[in-house]
Simulated scan of single mutants.
Amino acid sequence: MDVDTRLLRYFATVVEEGNLTRAAQRLYISQPALTKQIRQLEARLGVNLFVRSRAGMTPTEAGEALAAHAGAVLTAWENALRVTRAATTRAARVLRVGFVASAANERTQLIIADFARRCPGWRVQMRQTEWTDPTAGLATGDVDVALLRLPVPAQSEFDVEVLLTEPRWIALPAGHRLAGEDQIRFRDLYDEPFVAAPAESGEWRDYWLAADEREGHPVRIGAVAHHPDEWLNAIAHGQGVSLTPEATARFYQRPDIVYRPVTGVSHSRVGVARPHTQRDDAVDAFVLSCRAVCVDGSLVASLTMDS
């Protein structure tokens, strides 16, 4: 019997959420469509997988049995896809590098240049993802290595090396009451609405809301953004404020948005990440380039003068 892995993923998400509405939101499909897919899976297997009630979706005994194996099946399939895609790009001598927003800031181009010196004939393909996937395609096998803003969901599944840290600032509409301040205390922003990343980004979203650094004050969500343009527009239109890396003030300047240093929150970290199981000469070389550029200041100066 053949079962579409998409159906199995839908099933696993419903089990995790225990609720069709939340699962549908996380999967970016409508609730009726998700219900139809679950019923299709039940019809193919010839069993009822859930007991449906107003309280939510509870797996039946058969559903629990499937859930016990679904994760391993999906992981094995993702690993097979990762190896297959990697083999294709290796043959073309292409290294796929995922990133979110500003990657490693101004050091990104220096890293790529250093990698080109280490691996002549190779090409770096930069792939940016929306904020629904803070792993920048690493979790799905769409990239070989990634430059990430930490923390990210399931970070323990990757080999992660921190490359640099920088302060978190606050982005405000130009007309905000605090826009004229040179520096802002985070506690003065507790009651402000915030522009948040999508819920499925998990702890990454919580980190950029500083959910654990609010002294018990709840977060107010004014808008949800999936990428930088959506985020900038939400702030400019007064839908909320947002924590952001200091580098954002350099990369995303707009007359209707101001960026200010903020005290009372931890610093942001940028890391280079790869799957635990992946051992590849090109990825090794890229990681070495990241270390050289981000740790060895003399190399940064040398590459800057050469460019």
Rank of each mutant, 00 (worst) to 15 (best):
T21S: 08
R149Y: 02
E17T: 01
M126N: 07
A292S: 15
R185K: 14
L66M: 05
Y28W: 06
E61Y: 13
E181G: 07
E246V: 09
V73Y: 05
G18W: 13
W204C: 08
T75I: 02
T129S: 08
A247T: 08
R260T: 10
I221S: 02
R93N: 09
L45S: 05
R214G: 06
R205L: 06
A70F: 00
A76P: 05
S268W: 02
S302W: 13
F186L: 13
E181I: 08
I184G: 13
I38M: 02
K36T: 11
V160I: 00
T140K: 13
V295M: 15
R177A: 14
L150G: 10
C119N: 04
W122S: 07
D281G: 04
R22H: 09
S102A: 11
D142K: 10
R220M: 03
P275L: 03
A33K: 11
Q128K: 12
V162G: 01
R52M: 01
A12H: 10
M57W: 15
V195A: 09
D133S: 04
T35M: 00
L163C: 09
L299Q: 15
L148R: 08
C119I: 10
L147I: 04
R214D: 08
P153L: 05
A62N: 03
P59H: 12
T132D: 13
I111N: 01
A146N: 05
V15I: 13
P255A: 12
K36R: 09
